[in-house]
Design a protein around this nucleic acid. Structure first.
Lengths: 279, 279
DNA sequence: TCTATTCATGTAACTTTACTACAGGCTAGT
DNA sequence: ACTAGCCTGTAGTAAAGTTACATGAATAGA
């Protein structure tokens, strides 16, 4: 909503721009104002305000206020703010959670569909699937393995450079390596990805946009997280969820749809076996 | 907002309850309606609608609509909906991400502060900290270890029953075991938690409300996820984030606040060492 | 440079909306 | 059965949003 106003601002009439500026300056207060007050504050007439609302695609002032409130609510609560030692437990957990959520929202919005489609297709045709990652990303790889195992798709997760180096060189053609790295610059990982490609395998990269890993991959899935939150603590969550998407997409395409779908969306009986699969 | 209406419903007057029911039945449409239409649809008079708005803590109908829109916007976009084989890549990734986000929002809202405070305090005083978890939760434990290691706090993560059984029995007094299990019924984990308590250690449980693990723990952190999404695929994310909160809380209390805080909120130089810490 | 035309902006009138004061009617206690 | 108190709807009011129209400014053509 805010971005839309910003985008449409140039093609607005001068007096309407005054309204736009006022709205962009203090969006929170706008929802509480009436046309009259808003018109007065922006030094324009009431109909101009209405014309502004129409210009940015609303049905009127009421509709505008509603959309504004909705837009603020969906963007506002999950702003990433730095933690400080003075924070109470409540604000602390709020901040950490909000940052995690904001990170996922961002990842969700920038994941490009074509790449995702291509990735699922590659996975679907692959005779063998392997997940490589180091450090925190190694855990993501393990998690992906674990999840695909539950879906009946055998895979291998490696976080040891020598192991995945050897494994990559020996991959059959059209295999898929999912290389996970936030920075996309880990040399060991790049080397193994290179080996995999030489062996005729495809590389799906889960990494940041523009990284070396992204450039040398068959398909790159960008899970960029906001610069303020550029830490393994957050990128992890985004990577995990991207893997979830891949797993679900693959399961839907491969497995007998109805049964496997339910297995994904609701768990079986909640007994002690439910989370006792060894890692 | 919706939960508030539900909570206040019993102490509403009969005709006001009719309005409440209508609002709860189709919340999305309400924001577009006027008092007159809403009153007609609920078969009550206009003033009753206004009284209803006041009763649930709004300043009037306008305010009510605004809050409703805001509430819907923050809850709506991340509704958990089941995936199906017909979904395109875009809707699929949207659904998976939305469910992940909804899960975190839910976890965020139900994490109780006192327990969190107590947990951080226990961790702060602990001479030794260990994380136990099986299966997917084992990865969460490893992740927590990894993260605390980065913060300069040595810990141990175990997912082998025999290993954490032995370790638990040998814990010094006031040590802390963080036991992670979605169901809270894994027998091996319960046994080790029992051993830890007998050894004089505290147990922080990250599990579902009312589980056996929660009952026998010193402090229980509930990371309940919505019943529709009751799968390891989601609880994982909530558990990870709860661990993040614990780690950040602990680091803030222990370490030299300013330096460590920045280390948490923004990463160092994005070179190849950034995510190359071995698992 | 003057004029005509088009577009932007404000004024004024209108409609709908939200809200308030009051009175009728139902419920409950005695 | 009667009365007191409270819930509910009717009628009225003020203010809000919206529309039609007229005036002013700006631009282009002669």
């Amino acid at each position: 909503m805010m971005t839309r106003i910003n985008a449409l601002r140039p093609q607005l009439r001068r007096s309407e721009q005054k309204v736009a500026d006022l709205v962009l300056a203090n969006p929170e207060t706008v929802t509480g104002l009436s046309i009259a007050s808003l018109a007065r504050d922006a030094a324009v007439s009431e109909p101009t305000v209405i014309r502004f609302c129409r210009a940015i695609g609303c049905n009127g002032f009421q509709d505008f206020k509603l959309r504004m409130a909705a837009s603020l609510a969906s963007g506002m609560p999950f702003v990433a703010s730095a933690v400080s030692a003075e924070d109470s437990a409540e604000t602390l957990s709020g901040k950490v959670f909000d940052r995690a959520i904001a990170c996922l929202v961002q990842a969700r919005n920038q994941l490009n569909t074509e790449a995702l489609d291509a990735a699922v297709e590659l996975l679907n045709l692959a005779p063998r699937i392997e997940f490589y990652g180091h450090g925190a990303s190694g855990l993501v790889a393990l998690d992906a393995q674990h999840k695909l195992f539950r879906l009946g798709i055998p895979t291998i997760a490696c976080s040891d450079p020598h192991v995945h180096g050897m494994s990559a060189a020996a991959l059959p053609a059209n295999s898929v390596v999912v290389a996970i790295s936030h920075t996309g610059r880990t040399t060991d990982l790049l080397r193994s990805a290179e080996l995999a490609r030489e062996a005729g395998a495809h590389v799906i990269a889960i990494t940041a946009c523009g990284s070396p890993l992204a450039r040398m991959s068959t398909v790159a899935l960008y899970a960029e997280v906001s610069e303020d939150a550029d830490t393994p603590m957050l990128s992890r969550l985004a990577h995990l969820t991207v893997c979830d998407v891949l797993a679900v997409g693959l399961a839907l395409r491969r497995g007998p749809a109805p049964a496997d779908t339910r297995q994904l969306t609701s768990q079986g009986p909640p007994n002690e076996r439910a989370d006792s699969h060894g890692p």
